[in-house]
Amino acid sequence: MTFPFILFAVFFLYLINSMTNTMCLEKEIPEDRQPYVFRTINVLITILLISTYIEILYVY
C-alpha cells in the first residue's frame, strides 16, 4: 500500500507544481514572490497527502 501511494504523491506534487507554474505565469506574479507561492502550496499539499496516508493506514 505504501509504494503505490508514494508514486501517486510524487505524481500529484508534480502536477500541482506545474499548475502553480502556469498560474504564476498567467497572473504575472513577480519573480521574487514566486518561491513563497510555491512553498506555501507545496507545504499545504504535503500536509494533505500525509493526512490522507494516515487516514488510509488507520481507517482501512
Rank of each mutant, 00 (worst) to 15 (best):
residue 2 T to M: 06
residue 2 T to G: 10
residue 2 T to H: 04
residue 3 F to K: 15
residue 3 F to M: 15
residue 3 F to T: 15
residue 4 P to S: 08
residue 4 P to M: 06
residue 5 F to A: 06
residue 6 I to M: 13
residue 6 I to L: 15
residue 7 L to C: 12
residue 8 F to I: 03
residue 9 A to K: 00
residue 9 A to V: 00
residue 10 V to Q: 12
residue 11 F to W: 13
residue 11 F to D: 12
residue 11 F to N: 12
residue 11 F to G: 15
residue 11 F to Q: 11
residue 13 L to Y: 06
residue 14 Y to N: 02
residue 14 Y to F: 08
residue 14 Y to C: 02
residue 14 Y to Q: 01
residue 14 Y to S: 02
residue 17 N to C: 01
residue 17 N to W: 05
residue 18 S to F: 12
residue 20 T to M: 08
residue 20 T to E: 03
residue 20 T to Y: 05
residue 20 T to I: 07
residue 20 T to P: 01
residue 21 N to V: 04
residue 21 N to S: 14
residue 21 N to G: 13
residue 23 M to Y: 15
residue 23 M to K: 09
residue 23 M to S: 08
residue 24 C to N: 08
residue 25 L to M: 13
residue 25 L to G: 07
residue 26 E to A: 10
residue 26 E to G: 07
residue 26 E to V: 09
residue 26 E to W: 12
residue 26 E to D: 07
residue 27 K to F: 06
residue 27 K to I: 00
residue 28 E to F: 08
residue 28 E to C: 02
residue 28 E to L: 06
residue 29 I to C: 08
residue 29 I to M: 09
residue 29 I to N: 09
residue 30 P to F: 11
residue 30 P to Y: 14
residue 31 E to Q: 13
residue 31 E to S: 13
residue 32 D to A: 09
residue 33 R to H: 14
residue 33 R to M: 14
residue 34 Q to T: 03
residue 35 P to R: 04
residue 36 Y to R: 14
residue 37 V to R: 03
residue 37 V to Q: 01
residue 37 V to L: 11
residue 38 F to E: 00
residue 39 R to M: 12
residue 39 R to F: 13
residue 39 R to E: 03
residue 40 T to R: 12
residue 40 T to G: 10
residue 41 I to F: 04
residue 42 N to Q: 08
residue 42 N to D: 01
residue 42 N to M: 05
residue 43 V to R: 04
residue 44 L to W: 05
residue 45 I to E: 05
residue 45 I to M: 11
residue 45 I to H: 07
residue 46 T to G: 10
residue 46 T to F: 15
residue 46 T to E: 06
residue 46 T to Y: 12
residue 47 I to F: 09
residue 47 I to R: 02
residue 48 L to Y: 08
residue 49 L to A: 01
residue 50 I to L: 09
residue 50 I to C: 03
residue 50 I to Q: 02
residue 51 S to M: 07
residue 51 S to I: 08
residue 52 T to D: 02
residue 52 T to R: 02
residue 53 Y to T: 02
residue 53 Y to P: 00
residue 54 I to R: 03
residue 54 I to F: 09
residue 55 E to H: 09
residue 55 E to M: 10
residue 55 E to N: 10
residue 55 E to L: 14
residue 56 I to C: 06
residue 56 I to Q: 10
residue 56 I to K: 14
residue 57 L to P: 00
residue 58 Y to E: 07
residue 60 Y to E: 12
